[in-house]
Simulated assay, not measured.
Amino acid sequence: MLTASLLLALTAAPQTPCTVTDGDTIRCGEERVRVTGIDAPETRACRQGRRCVEGDGAASTRAMEALVDGAELTFVRLGQDRYGRTLAVVYANGVNVACVQLAARQACYVERWDDRRLVAADCPALAASRAVS
């Protein structure tokens, strides 16, 4: 749920249609948006040397597609990651998509990726129950 303090920070997504890259990444035109605070299973194999969340990456991607498809998206942009993606809390029709992915068990909460604790503020019980280090 959107809090009053966040309403001032929200930026609407561009009019460009958005597509889902995987369970925690969306592309809107040229902008790649990494949903902050969560890690979803990889759609492709986990690259060597990385620790990846276990689960069905295709199912996580489909769950994110269902959230984004036809939804009004708003972003709380927080900066960029080392890959040049926008880091953001993403809301679909006013609902935090990270929280929905956590509730559906399609992602895990990663506290160190939730710098401003915005995901934890929106769904504290889910963040606590789905946390990984």
Rank of each mutant, 00 (worst) to 15 (best):
L6P: 00
A9V: 10
L10E: 01
T16E: 12
T19G: 10
T21C: 06
D22P: 10
D24I: 00
D24P: 03
T25V: 00
C28I: 03
G29I: 00
E30H: 12
E31W: 12
E31F: 11
E31D: 15
R32W: 14
R32V: 11
V33P: 00
R34D: 02
V35H: 02
G37C: 08
G37R: 01
I38R: 04
D39Q: 14
A40H: 07
E42C: 10
R44Y: 14
R44P: 10
R44T: 15
C46N: 10
R47C: 08
R47H: 14
R47Y: 12
Q48H: 12
Q48M: 00
R50F: 13
C52I: 00
E54K: 13
E54L: 07
E54V: 09
G57H: 05
A59E: 09
R62M: 12
M64F: 00
M64P: 04
A66W: 07
D69L: 11
D69E: 15
G70N: 08
G70P: 09
A71L: 08
L73H: 03
T74N: 05
F75D: 00
V76M: 11
V76E: 13
R77L: 04
R77Y: 02
R77V: 01
L78A: 09
G79Q: 10
D81H: 11
A88N: 02
V89T: 07
V89I: 10
A92R: 04
A92T: 07
A92W: 04
V95C: 09
V95R: 15
V95T: 15
V97H: 02
C99W: 05
V100L: 13
Q101W: 06
Q101Y: 06
L102N: 11
A104R: 15
R105P: 03
R105I: 00
R105H: 15
Q106H: 04
Q106D: 04
C108H: 14
C108R: 15
V110Y: 09
V110S: 09
E111A: 15
D115F: 02
R116D: 05
V119F: 03
A120G: 07
A120W: 05
A120Q: 14
A121M: 08
C123F: 12
P124R: 08
A125E: 15
L126G: 07
L126M: 04
L126E: 09
A127Y: 05
A128P: 05
A128L: 11
A128D: 13
S129N: 09
R130E: 09
